[in-house]
Amino acid sequence: MKKFAWLLTLVLALSLVLSACGAGATPTPAPVEKFRVAVVMPSAINDLAFSQSMYDALVRVQKDMGGPDKFEIVYSENMFVVDDAAAAIRDYATKGYDLVIAHGSQYGSSLQEIAPDFPDTSFAWGTTVDTFGLPNVFAYEAASQEGGYVNGVLAAALTNTDVIGVIGPIETGDAKLYVDGFKAGVLSAKPGAQVNVNYIGSFSDTALAAEAATTHIAAGADILTGTAQMVVGAIGKAEEANVLWFGTQSNQSSLAPKIVVASQVYHWEVVLKQMIDLIQGGTLGGQSFTANLANGGEVIEVNPDSNVFDYAKPLAEDTVKGIIDGSIKITLP
């Protein structure tokens, strides 16, 4: 009987593994010319944030390259346990994928161990600029401070209370770049405004993110922004209080069409295409790439359903133009 209990537990555990691997994980023997990409991500492909930005980009690349016959995508999502992610990365490398993407800076040390074992496989990881000096590792990052800056300029122009709230996960990496850029944007347009920043210490605690939003609003904020996947809880609170929201990583307009003014969206396909070209030319790594406003890796998408669309759209375009042509310099703290 006790054996059966173990078996049951095993089956239960297995069901997690299966669901975590996702539906796309059905590798088929590839014709020679097919380019095969595997990606390991910390959250879900539809998190409206970090992971979705990469997945959407891969799908766009696939379309450009001629569909699933020419470009195969497999993914492992919700790999918030780094050890599991490392196992998945190794597995994909063993199966001979052309490019294995470790989409999360927490996977760096695992990749540093794995990559030398597979010299013929190309790896990419982000967001970072560090390739560990390995010839088969690409690094990529987003200049998310640029989009943050644009969002900040818009926020400064739209606030009435001159108090703006920011919710972040952990004070590091992509999130810190975005938050610092946002702050710089607000202060450049309205030096007297107050930007309150709240890092909640978690990428997944939706409830705490929501309560952080409520706290910002109680402290007088009439505009909020936030980064990472747990902010979906905060967007709901902003909508309840009818407070404007600025998004990043993916377009978050669908969640709350009335209050989302603009979202910085990553178009990783810009860096992906450069990597793919290099791989097909025989270079497997050793370079790092940045997605930014200038190369189209970052796009500010102003929500057409927003009440302030007509005002925000030209202001956003002007700011983007200024950053690209260098007339606006972003100084981070």
Partner: peptide
């Protein structure tokens, strides 16, 4: 209480260890 009273969204692993 999280998904239909306090937050009104559902996201994977939204309980986050609670």
């Amino acid at each position: 209480s999280l998904s239909i009273a306090l937050l009104n969204v559902f996201q994977q692993n939204m309980t986050s260890g609670q």
